[in-house]
Nucleic acid binder design. Structure first.
Lengths: 119, 119
DNA sequence: AGTGTATATACACATAAACGTATATTATAG
DNA sequence: CTATAATATACGTTTATGTGTATATACACT
């Protein structure tokens, strides 16, 4: 039914924490080991492992085990879902988008979608 | 430098709560009064007012005061910012996107994204 | 075997978040 | 002016979340 209460449920929660966003940001450049991530975030290793667990449960990361190392990397699905969710409000955020002069999506410009029915 | 720690900070937190997402969903169809929203969400009016305050602080909604009524409606900016944030991971989520056969952005063709189910 | 390294998990704790009840505020009706 | 409706806020309580320390597990090397 509605995409809002389905997958995105955990996605927003997972990204609500700034440390987790920093981890995701670090993983944006490619896969990283846990200690590698610890070096970039100012919490202890245990905290990073916990955050990685949360991100993993939310579908944001996969692990590639190599010996005693674990390399985490981003999974595309949650980002796709987020993009879908936001695009559901496209008419909303395109209202003012025109005067900002450009479109995020890399397309040229937006159509003047005018829809507003105050119930 | 990174867009992640700027505005999106509060945005994800605001959307982390399912009730707030339901409110946002309801506002997607247009502006609504507080009591109107209370009818759609199964918490009390005080809770809805609190959520609206949080959404307002996060920039998601504006108020139009009309007599004793307050009509809340969505602001486009946070959605734009979210779209920007996600598009920063475009290379990530486009990796697997092809085999899903469609693009969220509507560039390709029909997307079975059907929503608009206020409940 | 034993030692060291990489990561996860258990536990305790502190803080934050969400909720309901009750109350305050403001506007409107009578 | 009083009563009522619409909304916001204060307060107390419960539950969730993030953190560190300490410990466990798994591998690697000697």
């Amino acid at each position: 039914m509605c995409i809002y209460t389905n997958v995105t449920v955990t996605a927003f929660g997972a990204l609500a924490d700034p440390t987790r966003r920093r981890i995701v940001e670090a993983l944006g450049a490619g896969e990283r080991s846990v200690n590698d991530l610890v070096a970039r975030v100012d919490i202890r290793q245990s905290g990073v492992s916990r955050h990685l667990r949360i991100l993993h449960d939310a579908g944001f990361v996969t692990v590639r085990v190599e010996g005693q190392h674990r390399f985490y990397s981003l999974r595309p699905e949650p980002f796709l879902e987020l993009a879908e969710w936001v695009s559901g409000y496209r008419t909303t955020w395109e209202r003012r988008l025109d005067r900002l002069g450009r479109v995020v999506e890399g397309r040229s410009q937006a159509r003047p979608t005018k829809r507003e029915e105050p119930r």
